[in-house]
Simulated assay, not measured.
Amino acid sequence: MKFHKEGYTSLALVILFIFVVNAIADYFDANQYVKWFLYILSAFLFLTIVQFFRSPRKLIALDDNIILCPADGKVVVIEETDENEYFKNKRLQVSIFMSPTNVHVNRNPMSGVVSYFKYHPGKFLVAWHPKSSTDNERTTVVVKNANGVEVLFRQIAGALARRIVWYVKEGDTVQQGEEFGFIKFGSRVDLFLPIGTKVDVNIGDKVVGGKTVIARF
């Protein structure tokens, strides 16, 4: 387990806040109840940041015949839908909701070349809102594998998630299971798969990024 690089600034701000608040309490000689409250609050804030930005080390067994889960969380959508940004036809959508307690590293679901990338500014509707996939701040990534199959996946900001980070661009060669981005403080990732793809998960399943098999070709 390691601490993710995206959390360094947040951790530094929390440590600074803890130091300043406790120094003020000592300077004004606050009573023991106030000091213990601040100690508990400080520990809670510190542990919250550390757990949120944790980044487990993973050994990924590469397999071109499967779609790996791109994020930790819970499966909230499995349905056929129109994908109107890139494919402009029907696709099989699988959506994973990430709560603030989940690991927020986003991983490539398959190996290949990034054939399309776009960042969309937008709203911050709650992640389970029906229009969050099209109206919220988001990124769209399409990867084409060695067999010519393309899979689209989106990072979608939510009501709490106000920063999407990505590490890919068009033309990049990516490897299954490697990090392609990070979303701060809870949101969701959508996958758009070819119609007929065999899905290995069900709505409500808890899934693990880089480990759970979402679907098979």
Rank of each mutant, 00 (worst) to 15 (best):
E83I: 01
R138G: 06
I203M: 13
I78P: 05
F52A: 02
V50F: 04
A71M: 10
I18W: 07
F3E: 07
L47M: 13
V168R: 12
L41E: 03
L191S: 04
H4V: 04
K123T: 07
R163C: 03
L125Y: 09
V142F: 05
E137R: 13
I60F: 12
V34S: 08
Y86K: 12
W36V: 10
L16N: 12
A30P: 07
K88C: 03
I183K: 03
K5A: 11
L160F: 10
R216Q: 10
I214T: 04
L62D: 13
D26E: 15
C69T: 06
V151L: 10
V21A: 09
L125K: 11
T134I: 15
S115A: 14
I96T: 02
Y119P: 06
D72L: 05
F97R: 08
V168P: 05
A215L: 01
N65L: 10
F37H: 11
A12V: 06
I156L: 12
Y33M: 07
A12E: 05
S132T: 08
P109M: 04
N136G: 11
V113I: 14
F19S: 12
V189W: 03
V201R: 11
A61I: 14
N106H: 09
Y167Q: 15
P100R: 00
F182T: 06
Q175N: 14
K144S: 12
K169A: 07
Y119M: 11
T48E: 08
A159V: 08
K88H: 06
E83F: 02
F44N: 09
A25S: 14
Y116Q: 04
L125Q: 04
A127I: 06
K58A: 06
K35H: 00
S111D: 08
F46L: 14
H4Q: 07
L47T: 03
R154V: 06
I60R: 04
